[in-house]
Amino acid sequence: MTTSTHLYSQLFDQLRQHSRVCDLRHLKALGWMVSALLCSGELNLAAWEPYVPSRATKAQSTERRWQRFMGNCRISVVAIYVPLVLVALRGWQHQRLYLALDTTVLWNRFCMIHLSVVCCGRAIPLLWRVVEQGSATVAFEEYQPLLRRARWLLRHHPDVMLLADRGFANHQLMQWLRQSRWHYGLRLPCDVLIHTQRRSPSMVGTLYPPLGEARLYQNVGLWLDGEHRCNLVLATVQGAKDAWAVVTDEAPTLQTLWQYALRFRVEELFLDSKSGAFELEDSRLRSPEAIVRLYLVCAIALLYATTQGMAVQLAGLRQQVDPHWKRGISYLKIGLRWLQGVMHKGRKLLSPVALLPQDPQPVFASKRAERDFYNQIWFTRICSLTCQP
């Protein structure tokens, strides 16, 4: 058995054990696509032909096989992918689950909405949707189906916190979060009106503290009506591009800023999908439904390579692929390098593990990077205020 066939066999076993499909041939095609993506590093249908054994004598025949998969409306992305993620999260019942909501634009024509799980310095795709528009700003109605599905899927997780950037702070989302009993950390635009101790509402931008200071507001009212009450943390950090204004339903502390900063892990997910690991924008698909199924291949590869990297870490084999004394690259990169070694150096293909709820070794590229990380945020003054409704 060749190494690519061995990799395919492990992927297919995982898919057949957990995923639900109406035709087993769909899983076979998907297993070969994920295997070819891990070998080639290109999310391009034409680049997978050398890595897939087939009786076809023409490359066009192999590519048409993938095209039929992308255009098959009988293939349910949720039924295939979500069970894999839930199995990977089986040890997280007593762990707070941070969900990052964000968007990315492809070719200035399609907007992909991502709902991801923050895990060990990275974000793992959970649910996604593609809408045909050139703007990264989406209405609540566009991502509400993702939130409702996530609420049902994560109903056994008692502690869930949603993190989102300025484009998602609106009345409808706030009301939905309150009804769902999810915690949240949302950044506000500078022009949002809030009700504090003053008689009239003020724009958030006029309340930013001086450089190196933070202000903690309890029980502020949002927008012109002031009906939605929450807590607010304002901070101006040395070296940051903009001041932060983060609203939360929990007590306002400096921990709120740390929690919101976890949202930036999804930016690294976008980088891995587009250029860091796979070349999403090199695909020539121009249909929202086909892009959703294409990203299914990418999401499974991201999840599989990440768990493979965690297996390498737990087995004490990290230094075979990571030149740093301590961990200096992500678990995704560790997993991808290990799989390349499986292909070309005869390394052993490790058994998949679940996603680690706690990172055994946080990643830093150097001692200086570690020192800068822990010393980058200092406040000379912290003020706490309580607002009366």
Results as ranks from 00 to 15, higher is better:
2 T>D: 08
17 Q>I: 02
19 S>D: 08
20 R>T: 08
21 V>P: 07
23 D>W: 12
24 L>M: 11
28 K>R: 07
28 K>T: 00
29 A>P: 02
35 S>C: 13
44 N>R: 13
58 K>N: 09
62 T>N: 12
64 R>F: 05
64 R>Q: 14
75 I>P: 06
76 S>C: 12
82 V>I: 15
84 L>F: 12
86 L>V: 02
89 L>G: 04
94 H>A: 14
94 H>R: 08
96 R>I: 10
100 A>V: 09
100 A>P: 00
109 R>P: 02
112 M>D: 06
113 I>G: 02
124 I>G: 07
125 P>F: 07
127 L>S: 05
129 R>I: 03
133 Q>D: 06
135 S>T: 04
135 S>P: 03
136 A>W: 07
137 T>S: 14
146 L>D: 12
148 R>L: 15
148 R>P: 03
149 R>H: 13
152 W>D: 14
155 R>D: 07
161 M>G: 03
162 L>A: 06
163 L>S: 03
171 H>M: 04
173 L>M: 08
174 M>D: 00
175 Q>R: 04
177 L>C: 14
177 L>N: 02
180 S>I: 05
184 Y>P: 00
184 Y>M: 03
190 C>E: 05
192 V>H: 15
199 R>M: 08
199 R>C: 08
200 S>F: 12
203 M>G: 10
205 G>S: 08
206 T>P: 02
206 T>W: 01
207 L>M: 15
208 Y>L: 13
213 E>L: 06
213 E>F: 07
215 R>G: 11
215 R>D: 06
217 Y>M: 05
219 N>E: 13
221 G>A: 05
223 W>K: 10
227 E>Y: 07
228 H>N: 03
229 R>S: 12
232 L>N: 05
232 L>D: 11
241 K>E: 02
241 K>W: 11
245 A>H: 08
248 T>P: 07
249 D>N: 15
249 D>Q: 07
252 P>K: 04
257 L>H: 04
259 Q>E: 11
264 F>Q: 08
268 E>T: 11
273 S>M: 14
273 S>A: 13
276 G>M: 03
278 F>D: 01
280 L>A: 15
281 E>W: 01
282 D>C: 14
282 D>P: 00
287 S>Q: 08
292 V>A: 14
296 L>A: 10
297 V>N: 10
306 T>I: 01
308 Q>A: 11
309 G>Q: 01
310 M>I: 05
317 L>Q: 14
321 V>H: 02
324 H>M: 03
327 R>H: 12
328 G>V: 03
333 K>A: 11
333 K>L: 10
339 L>E: 04
342 V>P: 00
344 H>V: 01
352 P>E: 01
355 L>P: 01
356 L>I: 13
356 L>D: 00
358 Q>L: 15
359 D>C: 13
360 P>G: 02
363 V>H: 01
365 A>P: 09
366 S>R: 10
368 R>I: 13
369 A>H: 10
369 A>L: 07
371 R>V: 10
376 Q>Y: 14
376 Q>I: 03
377 I>E: 05
377 I>M: 04
380 T>W: 09
383 C>Q: 15
385 L>G: 01
